[in-house]
Each structure stands twice: as structure tokens, then as C-alpha cells.
């Protein structure tokens, strides 16, 4: 298929997944901000819970530029939910996803396009009231449901062709990226000095994080024990039975790339295989030894390298990447 088509579909699903993950992140931030054990004021903006979604998404400097003064929940929510000048707001992401889907309409099933279009139309009427009536939790739930629904329609109706593979690839690349960033949250949330690691604040923060990836009850079923950073790391990084873990995402990515890479020894497949093996055979002790933050940052770096390779190989190839056959044809032509 055309690279532009693959690229638009890949980004369509990344944008929907990102909108869902942004809703999840804002949701836990909101919950954390309601906790009785607040993060005390350390005098630093970045310790404020409402700075978290900005830091995690790499939007802090953009935000500060356009929003002088202290961070408030209202300002951050507005910026992250409905601000159409912020390309990473839920509104902008859904608009971009719908545009991408619309331009690739011929490659989607009717149900998919109708679902995407209806989602966008309803979003416009919902986003403003979500903030004004305090129905923000309903709104986040709605976004999650829409994302689930679109994924379901995709899996349930679409031909298993290349277009499908690029849509799925977008979902899991974005999800892996998000899980890494989310897990790294704890690095940014300083515990109040009087609090011990493992204390009440610590507990609430970890459980909110698990809840944001719908993993709290899974944690309980698997470990039947208190929440510890090590176990959370194991669950969200190494367990392949948790659908939002890095291992689960890489299972999918590696499999999809196996299908997409028709020529032997293509770089994206090799990179994904390497990342997959590391998760498949990794141990949580090693991760804790390296340091969770360091481990996650390195993983994020590799994910970016993989994305760059996907661009290079499939999505936005450069003109000079002519295959051998084409060069031969050119020579014949000039002979």
C-alpha cells in the first residue's frame, strides 16, 4: 500500500489510543488530587499533581509558555481536554484521528468510519459541558468507551490486510509508549519528606497508577498481597498476560512486524525482536538493580528508534531508497 495511507492509518490509531491514555492519565491525576494525603508543597511546580500530565506528555514547557501563573486543575484540564491550540489535547487528537480516517475512508469499513465520525461529532458537543458541569469523570469514561468501541469495530469488521496491521501497530506502539511514561510517574512524584516509602501516600499513588491502566484488580488476583513498586514494575513491564504491559505490547508489535517485513533482515523486525526478547527473558530484579527510571528511559529510547525505523522503512520513506530492480531498470532505460 501507499506509504501515506499506512502513515495516516498508523497515526489514526495512535491518536485514538493517545486520547484514551490522556483521559486515563487525567483521571488518575484528578483522583490523586482528591486524596487526603496531598503531596505537600515543596515550592516546586513540578511536584504539584497537576503538573504530572504535562511532564509525562512532554508538554510542560509549552504549557508554561501559554499559561503564566500557578498551575490549577481547571487550567490543566482545559489545556489537555479541549484546547484546540494544543495538538496533544483530547480534542485535537480526536480531530486529527477523524481527519486521518476521513482521508483514508476507502480503506476503512463503513462501520469504522461511521463510528469514528459519530465519535467526533459527539465529542464536540460533550467537551465543553464536561468541564463546566463537573462531569469530568463521565467524560473520561466516555472517551475510554469510544476508544474501546472503535478498536472493537476494527477487530470485528476489518479485513486482515496491511491496512489492518498498520492500525494495530499504531495502537500498540502508542500503548507501550504510554505505559512507560506512566510507570515513570513515580519518579516525578516526590514523597513528602516525612513520609516513608511504603507509607499511605505511597500506597495511594501506586494504586491510582494501577487503576489508571485498569490493572488494580489484576494485581490483587495475581499477587494477593500489598502493593510494592517491584511487583508493579513486574506486572506492567514483564507480565505478558496484562494487556497494557510492555511485554504484551511487544508481543503484538513483534508479531505484526513479522507479517509486515517481507524481506529478510529488516531493521524494524530485528529491533522489535530484540526488545521483545529482553522482556520475555528479563527479570524484575535486574530492572530494580539498574533502577526503574533508568530502565524505562532506555526502553523509551529504543521505542523511539523503532518508530524512526518504521518511518524509514514504511511510513515516510526517503526517495533514495530505490531497490536494486529499479536501478537496473533505470540503466536499461538510458542504454
Amino acid at each position: 500500500m501507499l506509504s501515506r495511507q499506512a502513515n495516516n492509518l498508523y497515526w489514526m490509531s495512535r491518536q485514538i489510543e493517545r486520547a484514551e491514555n490522556t483521559a486515563r492519565l487525567l483521571d488518575i491525576t484528578y483522583r490523586m488530587s482528591l486524596l487526603p494525603y496531598r503531596v505537600v508543597d515543596t515550592g516546586q511546580d513540578w511536584a504539584e499533581p497537576w503538573a504530572l500530565p504535562l511532564i509525562i506528555n512532554g508538554l510542560a514547557s509549552d504549557y508554561y509558555e501559554s499559561h503564566p501563573g500557578p498551575i490549577t486543575s481547571d487550567k490543566v484540564l482545559r489545556y489537555m481536554v479541549i484546547d484546540n491550540t494544543n495538538p496533544s489535547s483530547i480534542y485535537s487528537l480526536m480531530r486529527a484521528a477523524r481527519e486521518n480516517g476521513r482521508s483514508m475512508r476507502g480503506l476503512l469499513t463503513t462501520e469504522m468510519y461511521e463510528d469514528l465520525n459519530a465519535m467526533w461529532l459527539e465529542l464536540r458537543s460533550r467537551s465543553e459541558t464536561a468541564l463546566s458541569n463537573g462531569g469530568i469523570n463521565d467524560f473520561f469514561e466516555w472517551i475510554k468507551t469510544q476508544s474501546h468501541q472503535f478498536r472493537g469495530v476494527t477487530v470485528g469488521t476489518m479485513l486482515r490486510d496491511e491496512a489492518y496491521q498498520f492500525i494495530r501497530l499504531g495502537t500498540f506502539m502508542e500503548r507501550a509508549d504510554n505505559t512507560v511514561r506512566l510507570l515513570d510517574v513515580k519518579y516525578h512524584t516526590l514523597l513528602p519528606s516525612a513520609e516513608e516509602v511504603g507509607g499511605a501516600v505511597d500506597y495511594y499513588q501506586w494504586s491510582a497508577l494501577l487503576r489508571s491502566v485498569s490493572a488494580l484488580s489484576s494485581y490483587r488476583r495475581i499477587y494477593r498481597d500489598v502493593i510494592t513498586p517491584k511487583r508493579v514494575a513486574e506486572l506492567l513491564i514483564l507480565r505478558d498476560d496484562l494487556p497494557r504491559s510492555l511485554h504484551a505490547c511487544l508481543n503484538e508489535i513483534y508479531e505484526i512486524l513479522g507479517d509486515l517485513c517481507k524481506h529478510e533482515s529488516m531493521e524494524p523486525e530485528r529491533l522489535a525482536g530484540e526488545m521483545h526478547a529482553q522482556l520475555h527473558y528479563g527479570r524484575v530484579e535486574q530492572i530494580m538493580e539498574v533502577g526503574l527510571h533508568e530502565y524505562l528511559m532506555e526502553f523509551l529510547e529504543r521505542l523511539h528508534t523503532l518508530n524512526a525505523e518504521l518511518n524509514h522503512q514504511f511510513l515516510v520513506p526517503v526517495d533514495t531508497a530505490l531497490p536494486k530492480t529499479a536501478t537496473t531498470a533505470t540503466q536499461k532505460q538510458s542504454a
Partner: peptide, 30 residues
């Protein structure tokens, strides 16, 4: 769609040595 051929934009094509190629996920296609 009715002809079963690709719908392309200018950015989907490039010219090398006076030959026009499509940029596809499977490499350049004449």
C-alpha cells in the same frame, strides 16, 4: 475505487532518472 487502482497525491510519488515511482510500504513502485 471502481477501477481498483490507487488514489494518489503528489507527495506519494517521486521521480528518479525520469522514472516516476510510488512510495509504498513495500518500497518504490513504478
Amino acid at each position: 475505487q471502481q477501477m481498483g487502482v490507487e488514489l494518489v497525491e503528489g507527495q506519494d510519488m517521486f521521480v528518479n532518472n525520469d522514472i516516476v515511482y510510488l512510495r509504498t510500504t513495500d518500497g518504490p513502485q513504478r
